[in-house]
Design a protein around this nucleic acid. Structure first.
Lengths: 143, 143
DNA sequence: CCCGGATAAGTTGTGCGCAATTGAATTGCG
DNA sequence: CGCAATTCAATTGCGCACAACTTATCCGGG
């Protein structure tokens, strides 16, 4: 029964992949969610996102992001600044250290992808299926 | 970049599916990991597993399972008994209430599967791919 | 038989993830 | 303009996950 459940397969695979990331990220003092935040920030270049925009990208709320960002700020990788235009917003920008980390971590995704044992084609197919599932579910929630 | 990452797709899909489970399980006062534990216990019939055996099935350690099982016991769904043969072991058995829940929850997996928008064939293919990835990773860890 | 290592479960501490609430700032409607 | 509804981030509380450690039990060699 357990073996038949797609959800358990998803849950187990997600934790297994995070296990692969853990030792790689440990070298940089990062957790996987923290790494995801950095991925978003690196992608944005200048134009730092607000906490909400980060949350929309990662599907995490302020209850998760606020303390996480506080830890990234304490590590000197990120700065949080109140927006001058709208004082409710907090913009999350990279420090020089945070930006520099990008170059040092370029090989991390490849090393993780290899550990799955899937080839390029299978990886792309898997990613697309999963993205479709996630979007189907979120579209349903909006109604 | 974020969009390219298989790992993020997996992480997001796993959380999205748990979101689908949440309202269904809430009616029974269960969380998703607690439901997984019950799935294992239902499968075993008599012959209650030890904490370690549960952990091997779900890939969770005693640090996660001990407090979780304590909550299931407090809810009256489970009983924990020291093994007479080996007093280090704790066997986890179902109460009448815990066993009875099985019938009341038979339609849960189907309702969740529907929300993914995938057909039977795609679901099986996805499950098999994910199971393969998980096993590949765990095989690597053992060396 | 005894003791050293191994094994099982539990505990502690940290960091998510999410619901619910709070408090401050902004928007929009009358 | 004025104030009620909304938006945004932060906080609180709870339940996983997981590493590291503790305690109790068992096993096996000498």
């Amino acid at each position: 029964m357990l073996r038949d459940q797609v959800c358990f397969a998803l849950y187990a695979a997600s934790r297994a992949l995070t296990d692969v990331y853990r030792p790689l990220l440990d070298e940089f003092g990062l957790t996987y969610p923290q790494y995801l935040v950095l991925l978003v920030l690196w992608e944005r270049g200048d134009d730092p996102p607000t906490v909400s925009e980060l949350g929309a990208a990662l599907r995490l709320d302020s209850g998760t992001l606020s303390p996480l960002l506080k830890r990234l700020a304490a590590a000197g990788l990120v700065v949080r600044t109140r927006s001058a235009l709208d004082e409710r917003r907090v913009e999350v920008g990279l420090t020089a250290d945070g930006a520099a980390l990008r170059q040092r971590m370029t090989d991390v995704p490849l090393r993780v992808a290899c550990s799955t044992g899937l080839d390029e084609t299978e990886l792309v197919a898997l990613r697309d299926t999963l993205t479709r599932v996630t979007e189907t579910i979120h579209r349903q929630k909006e109604q």
